[in-house]
Amino acid sequence: MPKPEILHVGIDLGTSRSAISASNGERFVVDSFVGWPVDMVAKKVLKRNVLIGHDAVANRTMLDLHRPLERGLLKEGSEKDVEAVRELLRHLLGLVGVSTNGKVAPGSVRAVVGVPAAALRTNKQYLRNTMKGIVDSLMIVSEPFAVAYGLDALLHTLIIDIGAGTSDFCVMKGRYPTEEDQRTLTIAGDSIDTHLLQLMEERFPQANVTVFMVRDWKEKNSFVGEPKQRVTVTAPVKGVPTELDITNEIRAACETLLAPTIETMLDLLSRVEPEFQERVRNNIILSGGGGLIRGLPQALEDALKQVGGGRVTYMEDPVFVGSDGGLALANDAPESDWEKLSA
């Protein structure tokens, strides 16, 4: 009997988007939304039992929509959210070719999943329990560690991974990061959305705007510092599509990220052994969706001037950097370790 094909995957299970990179070369990213038709009519129209990702967001009016992750962690206490995250994981694995009747069965999948740096052990246990039966073996690591591993940035490097739910910081010192080496802030993409929505409601009280709309605007136009051009969007005001200039609002919302990010970065740098501080300052890597905020690397470099200057490198492919790191870990882990980590 032929030996079943083993598939290694790295998964970045994100609050807003989840990415998967597989050893068969496939890579996908989906919005972390799962929805079930609210009634028979919706089911007939949608012709599916469950919708995931962009489809779920686009058809949300007909769905019982769930976003099963909060601050980078699985929501606890709701069976529907547990089921949603299991559907999301099955969907991600299905995209890279895993299915019960396909070439790769769930029993042949070895997964590395990234979680926020400050995730507690109970959070990890909960994730492990949730993934039972979906993969064969599972390793859970801190997301910035996965990023560092994938980039070979293992020594004298500071990783800043700004996602939707959390901003994770990790100083790599050539060892598995301890709690002293890592920080997690809950000021991240979602908090920018909330703030932007609030500012929009204050400035344009007649406009009808949802968090999905502001998220979309932010992803296309986010910036800090001086604007290169005015940001205008179209939104219904008293039912009439109207062009709104939201340059100042986008900037104000995005800049809420600056102070805590800079403070945390400088705080972590100050805890590095003095002889290595300069090397770490010049080796700061910005990843995650937050890396797409225009002007952010420059703003961080400006802040570094007060401690002697430094260099912030922005990842060209921030969406997959976490899942690619997870895949690198999965590929490198020896067979004997995977046997111990069965899910």
């Binding site: 246990q125 390793m139 050539g174 598995y176 882990a333 111990k340």
Partner: peptide, 22 residues
Amino acid sequence: IDRVRRRLLAEAVADNLATIQG
């Protein structure tokens, strides 16, 4: 790099085993 990677990987596995064992 290989040496550091191996050590980090071993530590990551150990951390996972500790989580499994509570």
